[in-house]
């Protein structure tokens, strides 16, 4: 009973729901954000319907047709072992989405738990977690990822693991920051005074309020995650053949760029467009939520 009083009192100011509505409203006004959403929509559709969209199997080789230029038979041409590049780009969307969702999902999970714990408990726990996150933030991200991938052996799973290891502190920081703000807010103090259990406060108040800044951060990160994974694959620490990963495709295609431009170009465009989609969306979402911009004329 007493809780409902608390909630109604804060609904207007801090409800994640109203915040979301505002974000969606804001996004609809921005043409760039709409463009971003469309791109991501297409990507997801491509990943889901890959078997229906791809004209060939992404791994079927035809040595006699290797390095064929784009034609009606192979719209994006073929690669150095005669696989259809269009089909590989289409199936590659699955790999990209998998990398993005797993990395961002795991980092959000780990980061939020650690961040909220740090912020809520404070004291030495906070100190410890934050110092560890400092270390990871001072690390040149790509180099750490390379070291992990080199150490564990190159594979997509190890790339994902490496990226989770370098990315979690960002979310830990965001989550902790939110908790610290919330801790000072009256209703938390009130909740404490009223003897609401810590756990309850945590689940009902702290977590929901952390979610929106974290989602924004995640949207912004998705593009970077994808690009980092592609870079790792490019250097040779990522996806293994015959996985149709876009970065790996560019890496293999780079020696062919001079004579067989299609090999590296289409996967390159796929990365560019997809990352751009994530970035446009993330950018717009951030603008809408940026408190300093709200006041602007």
């Amino acid at each position: 009973m007493h809780l409902s009083i608390l909630e109604s009192g804060t609904e207007e100011k801090r409800s994640p729901n109203s915040e979301w509505r505002r974000v969606v409203r804001g996004l609809r006004k921005s043409p760039l954000a709409v463009l971003g959403s469309v791109i991501i929509g297409i990507l997801i559709a491509m990943a889901i319907f890959a078997p229906f969209l791809a004209p060939y199997s992404p791994t079927k080789m035809r040595l006699s047709e290797r390095l064929s230029p784009p034609s009606s038979r192979h719209i994006f041409g073929t690669d150095d072992v005669g696989r259809d590049i269009l089909s590989r780009v289409i199936y590659g969307s699955r790999i990209s989405l998998r990398i993005c969702t797993v990395v961002v999902g795991l980092t959000i999970g780990i980061g939020t738990i650690l961040g909220v714990t740090a912020g809520y408990l404070g004291g030495w726990v906070d100190e410890l977690i934050m110092r560890i996150s400092d270390v990871f933030l001072a690390f040149p991200a790509l180099i750490l990822a390379m070291a992990i991938a080199a150490a564990l052996g190159p594979s997509l799973d190890n790339v994902i693991l490496a990226m989770v290891v370098i990315w979690w502190p960002r979310y830990a920081r965001v989550a902790r920051g939110q908790v610290l703000v919330l801790r000072e807010i009256d209703y938390m103090v009130a909740a404490k005074a009223l003897g609401v259990s810590g756990c309850r406060t945590f689940i009902h108040h702290i977590l929901p309020n952390c979610i929106s800044p974290i989602i924004i951060q995640a949207t912004l990160d998705l593009g970077e995650v994808l690009l980092t994974a592609a870079t790792l694959s490019f250097i040779g620490f990522g996806a293994q053949p015959p996985t149709p990963e876009w970065g790996a495709m560019i890496s293999l295609g780079r020696n062919y760029l001079r004579d067989n431009w299609w090999y590296a170009t289409f996967p390159g465009l796929a990365i560019l467009v997809t990352v751009m989609g994530f970035n446009l969306l993330g950018d717009a979402a951030r603008d809408v939520l940026d408190p300093r911009l709200r006041r602007s004329p």
Partner: peptide
């Protein structure tokens, strides 16, 4: 890999430093 697939052996490719 493709040749072995023809005779029912699954060959996994691993790349190492």
């Amino acid at each position: 890999q493709e040749g072995l697939a023809e005779i029912g052996i699954k060959l996994e490719i691993e790349s190492y430093a």
